[in-house]
Computed example of a mutant assay.
Amino acid sequence: MLDLRRLDVIGTNVSCVDLVEFCRNVAADTTPLASTQGYELSLRQVSTVWPSRVMPAHYSASSSILVQNTIEHRGGKGNITIKIDRRAIIEVRTKETRHKGLET
């Protein structure tokens, strides 16, 4: 669950980051866990670079939690995809489900 107290400080920790590179890092950080639980992890993006203004620490924690929750609750086999769409929304999905995650 996202920490609503962060809404009071929006703008104080916002910076421009490349969401594609950001999601590559999330995938790299969570691949060992996914792999040991029987999943393959992949990344889909619409661009090779996607600059966006976000709170990096908030996005990092939230994205990792979405991936971890998918690993815990999807039964232990298959592929988990981290996707960045044209609206800069990060989704974590399996073949059966889609967990819309973070919008910039």
Score class of each variant (00 low, 15 high):
41 L>W: 11
56 P>Q: 11
13 N>T: 10
58 H>D: 14
61 A>T: 15
37 Q>K: 15
64 S>G: 12
28 A>F: 08
16 C>M: 09
30 T>H: 06
68 Q>T: 12
5 R>L: 11
14 V>P: 01
17 V>Y: 01
19 L>W: 03
4 L>W: 08
50 W>K: 09
94 T>I: 04
42 S>R: 15
29 D>L: 13
72 E>N: 14
32 P>R: 08
48 T>H: 07
46 V>K: 12
99 H>T: 06
8 D>A: 11
13 N>S: 12
89 I>A: 08
78 G>W: 02
31 T>H: 14
103 E>C: 04
50 W>S: 08
82 I>W: 05
59 Y>G: 09
16 C>S: 15
19 L>E: 02
77 K>A: 09
45 Q>V: 14
38 G>I: 02
32 P>W: 09
88 A>G: 01
25 N>V: 04
101 G>Q: 05
71 I>K: 10
58 H>G: 02
44 R>S: 15
83 K>R: 06
74 R>F: 07
6 R>V: 01
74 R>A: 12
13 N>R: 15
80 I>N: 11
46 V>R: 14
77 K>E: 14
50 W>T: 13
19 L>V: 03
74 R>D: 08
26 V>L: 01
34 A>L: 07
60 S>L: 13
73 H>P: 00
5 R>K: 12
64 S>P: 00
104 T>H: 05
46 V>L: 13
40 E>G: 11
98 R>S: 10
16 C>Q: 13
58 H>F: 12
57 A>I: 10
39 Y>E: 15
14 V>S: 09
19 L>I: 05
43 L>M: 13
3 D>K: 04
15 S>P: 09
27 A>K: 14
43 L>H: 02
27 A>T: 04
42 S>G: 14
53 R>M: 02
9 V>I: 11
75 G>Q: 12
69 N>E: 12
88 A>V: 01
24 R>L: 03
87 R>K: 00
26 V>Y: 05
8 D>T: 00
27 A>E: 05
15 S>F: 10
99 H>G: 03
40 E>Q: 15
56 P>D: 10
94 T>E: 03
66 L>I: 14
66 L>Q: 15
11 G>W: 05
1 M>Y: 03
34 A>I: 06
38 G>K: 12
76 G>W: 04
78 G>C: 09
17 V>G: 00
90 I>R: 02
19 L>K: 08
20 V>K: 10
62 S>H: 14
68 Q>R: 03
60 S>F: 04
104 T>R: 07
8 D>K: 05
97 T>L: 09
97 T>C: 06
23 C>H: 03
32 P>G: 10
7 L>E: 13
38 G>R: 14
67 V>T: 10
63 S>M: 08
102 L>P: 11
55 M>T: 14
42 S>F: 05
3 D>M: 05
50 W>E: 13
21 E>F: 01
78 G>A: 06
22 F>L: 10
104 T>L: 04
99 H>F: 08
17 V>T: 00
85 D>G: 01
71 I>S: 09
3 D>Q: 10
